[in-house]
Simulated scan of single mutants.
Amino acid sequence: MQWYELKNWLELSTGLDRDALHIYAGIGIQLVVALILRRSLASPVPWGFVMVAAFANEYFDYTATSGSLAGNAALYEEAYRDIWNTLLLPSLFLMIARFWPNWLIGKARSDEKIDMLQNDRPRS
Rank of each mutant, 00 (worst) to 15 (best):
D115M: 13
D115Q: 09
I96W: 03
K107Q: 10
I105H: 15
D17F: 11
L37Q: 14
E112T: 14
D120F: 15
I29C: 05
L37V: 06
A25K: 01
M51E: 08
W3N: 06
L87D: 03
I27S: 03
N57A: 09
I114E: 15
D115K: 14
R123P: 07
M1F: 02
N85C: 07
W3M: 03
V33M: 02
P46M: 07
A53R: 02
W84H: 09
P101L: 11
A34S: 11
D17A: 10
F49A: 05
L88A: 02
L10N: 02
L75Q: 02
V52S: 05
A79M: 04
E112I: 10
A20E: 00
S110T: 10
L87G: 00
S110N: 14
E5S: 10
E58S: 00
L35P: 04
G106C: 10
D115R: 13
R38H: 07
Y80A: 04
D115F: 12
S124Y: 15
K7T: 07
E77R: 10
R81S: 14
Y59M: 01
T63P: 07
W3R: 00
A54D: 07
L117R: 15
E78G: 09
G106Y: 09
G67Q: 05
K7P: 02
N85G: 10
L41I: 10
W9A: 01
A97L: 04
Y80R: 07
I29F: 04
F60T: 04
L31K: 06
Y62T: 08
W84C: 12
D61F: 13
T65L: 14
L88Y: 00
